[in-house]
Computed example of a mutant assay.
Amino acid sequence: MTTWITICDTCKHDDWDAATDAQTHGEQLAALIEAEANGDVKTRRVSCLMGCTRACNVAIQGEGKLAYTLGNFDPSEEAAAGIVEYAQKHAASETGQVPFREWPQAIKGHFVTRHQPLPKSDQA
């Protein structure tokens, strides 16, 4: 199953300035993640994950697996590499759960939410 990294491309930290910054922080992080990702994971950009107080935000999701929202990243190569590495581990996991000892350092402290997979039927 494919794991997706959904990247908010409208995220901006408080120091963002439209007059001097050509891209939002989310656009910068998205470009770095896209450059780092390979066939194990897919990426997509969306406009707003509604986590503005924790910009830059990403969601890591896969059908039938736990899903995670992470935020408060700086748009850096280190953050992008950590996000992609975690997504690759998510893809390799049957449930989407990745043991803490395997988390890349760059994503520790950035988890915002965890969502259970949707039920396969109308029964919860």
Rank of each mutant, 00 (worst) to 15 (best):
T2H: 09
W4M: 06
I5A: 08
I5K: 03
T6N: 09
I7N: 03
I7H: 01
D9Y: 07
H13S: 10
H13K: 15
D15G: 03
T20E: 15
D21S: 13
Q23N: 09
H25T: 03
G26C: 11
E27V: 03
E27S: 09
Q28V: 14
L32Y: 02
L32F: 02
L32Q: 07
L32W: 02
A35Q: 12
N38W: 06
N38S: 15
D40G: 09
K42P: 00
K42E: 12
T43E: 13
T43D: 12
S47N: 13
C48V: 09
R54W: 07
A55V: 02
V58P: 05
L66Y: 15
A67T: 14
L70N: 00
G71A: 06
G71Q: 01
N72S: 15
F73D: 08
F73S: 04
P75N: 05
S76Q: 07
E78H: 04
A79K: 01
A81F: 08
G82V: 00
G82L: 04
I83L: 09
Y86G: 01
Y86L: 15
A87L: 05
Q88M: 04
K89W: 00
K89Q: 05
A91I: 02
T95V: 10
G96F: 05
V98G: 05
R101K: 14
R101H: 10
E102V: 00
K108R: 15
V112G: 00
H115I: 03
Q116S: 15
Q116P: 02
S121Y: 04
S121W: 10
